[in-house]
Design a protein around this nucleic acid. Structure first.
Length: 493
RNA sequence: GAGCCCGUAGCUCAGCCGGUAGAGCAUCUGACUUUUAAUCAGGAGGUCGUGGGUUCGAAUCCCGCCGGGCUCACCA
């Protein structure tokens, strides 16, 4: 609580009411209230009750006071399911309760006992026979009609945003439904949900800058994980299951943008004895079925554009897409210098040490990514940028990796997983070379991971899906901050 | 990290080619009483993000800082 709030005239006035309530013998923060009905349940139960009809049905509802009309005669109570109107009239409510009513404010949480009726104007209403203050609110809510518009306050004080905005509430509820749907779809297919370390001594499985922390007793630095990949594969080596997945937070110490939050939620799954083609089917299955369940359709509108998520999705190789768009066939370019020159000419920015694969990938990023609006599996990434992926079965310069693009953004990343320990070690060596050349995000050698592979990991397909971005897509949210309840912000003052 | 934009009452906003701050809602007082953003009358409420500068005078012009948004960079 800041000084400003403490000096707030509204807060002062409400503290005085709080004292007055206690003087009346009213406890403003009681322990329990036996609720018997929610607003939505009442709406459903009494949907056929005609206007102007009374019932003798007694209910107990509870919620936040969001509107007071006619000097307290009508209250709008909001609970987690919706709105129910309360009618306070001397015909039903004992006189001493009107003292309590006078001391109620917008934002207070109250319980109401009474009988259900529908008013002549058609509003389902509880004729209150007893009001119970359940929580006194000390601060005024934002204005009801316009709601809370200030985006900074919406993110910093999400509770206020949720009180005021049905849309924000729906988005965050949909997030929960989306994750539940994915979990169910995977469980149905026999996947085992596992948990792997957030604190890692060697941050692996992705190219990203990690957050560093310190363990006091061990007196070592530990990293917040940038990916669970290397640990999930260890579980595959162990054979805990042929199908494992984890849905959890990852942390990357990089820029914040409408599509990036330093901590974000990733689904990662591994399935033994299949390749990246199976992962394409899996990506389509998870996203399309979840869209059906949460949005009721596989045709979703994102930022004004209709996206058709109905499987199967378009598949195209990176090289073909680049060739189609630029006319340059990287597959027939034999050396690094020529490839880099072609890429730079097309506007791709490449480091001096760039090779053929960096060049192809650079052109793809610069020229193609943003144009992929409808779901597209972009296949066969260059070896250099895919250090954990199995070599392509027909072209050793490439790997069996695809990323799925929708609305110009990456939604999935999947491989035929590299399980050749000798090749894996060579890839780590190449990464360490890039690190020496100044690429801070090149992957670090994890020797124990290579050891695990030496014991033998079954051939497997692996898939990662960014959950926050999927939620953005399915809730038509423009910013990742809208789908994360408490997005990372710089602390105030 | 760079560029552009924003920050005025509890909330939503107006005022901004310089002349000492305004509305609606909320709040308080009163009236009214079967309302639906209830209505009517009256009152209170502001270090104009913050610190400097220019000026007789700054919410307004200039600079720094703080916080936010967008774009770019980073995010293979």
């Amino acid at each position: 609580m800041s000084d400003e709030d403490e000096e707030n005239q509204f807060r002062t006035a409400r503290l005085e009411k709080l004292a007055a309530l206690r003087k009346l013998g009213v406890e403003p923060y009681p322990y329990v209230f036996p609720v018997t009905a929610t607003a939505a349940a009442l709406d459903a139960t009494y949907k056929d009750l005609s206007a102007g009809t009374n019932t003798n049905d007694v209910v107990a509802v509870a919620g936040r006071v969001r509107a007071v009309r006619n000097n307290g005669m009508f209250l709008d109570l909001h609970d987690a399911t919706g709105k129910i109107q309360v009618f306070n009239h001397k015909d039903f409510l004992p006189p001493e309760q009107f003292q309590l009513l006078k001391l109620l404010d917008l934002g207070d949480i109250v319980g109401v006992d009474g009988k259900i009726r529908r008013t002549p104007r058609g509003e389902l209403t509880v004729n209150a026979t007893r009001l119970t203050l359940l929580t006194k609110s000390l601060l005024p809510l934002p204005e009801k009609y316009h709601g809370l518009a200030d985006v900074e306050t919406r993110y910093r004080q999400r509770y206020l945003d949720l009180i005021m905005s049905a849309e924000s509430t729906k988005t965050l509820r949909d997030r929960s439904r989306i994750i539940a749907s994915i979990r169910r779809l995977l469980t149905v297919r026999g996947f085992l949900e596992v948990e792997t370390p957030m604190l890692q001594a060697i941050p692996g499985g992705a190219a990203a800058k990690p957050f560093v922390t310190h363990h006091n007793t061990l007196d070592i630095d530990l990293y917040l994980r940038i990916s669970p990949e290397l640990y999930l594969k260890r579980l595959l080596v162990g054979g805990i299951s042929d199908k494992v997945f984890e849905i959890n937070r990852n942390f990357r110490n990089e820029g914040i943008s409408p599509r990036h939050n330093p901590e974000f939620t990733l689904l990662e799954l591994y399935q033994a004895y299949v390749d990246y083609f199976a992962m394409m089917e899996m990506t389509e299955h998870l996203i399309a079925e979840t869209a059906r369940e949460v949005c009721g359709t596989t045709h979703v509108t994102y930022q004004g554009q209709v996206i058709d998520l109905t499987p199967p999705w378009k598949r195209a190789t990176m090289a073909d897409l680049v060739k189609e768009k630029t006319g340059i066939d990287f597959l027939v370019i034999a050396n690094d210098a020529e490839a880099c020159a072609a890429a730079r000419k097309l506007g791709a920015e490449l480091p001096k040490s760039a090779t053929w694969g960096h060049a192809l990938y650079g052109v793809f990023e610069a020229e193609i990514e943003a144009t992929l609006i409808q779901p597209t599996h972009v296949m066969d990434f260059p070896r250099e940028v895919s250090p954990l992926t199995k070599a392509h079965r027909t072209d050793p310069r490439l790997t069996e990796r695809f990323e799925t693009f929708i609305h110009g953004g990456e939604y999935a990343n999947a491989y035929s997983e590299l399980n050749d320990p000798v090749d894996q070690l060579a890839r780590f060596d190449a990464q360490m070379h890039e690190r020496d050349l100044g690429d801070e995000e090149a992957q670090r050698l994890d020797k124990d991971f290579v050891t695990a592979l030496e014991y033998g990991m079954p051939p497997a397909g692996g898939l990662g899906i960014g959950i926050d971005r999927l939620v953005m897509l399915l809730t038509d949210s423009a910013s990742i901050r809208d789908v994360i309840a408490f997005p990372t912000l710089r602390p105030r003052s």
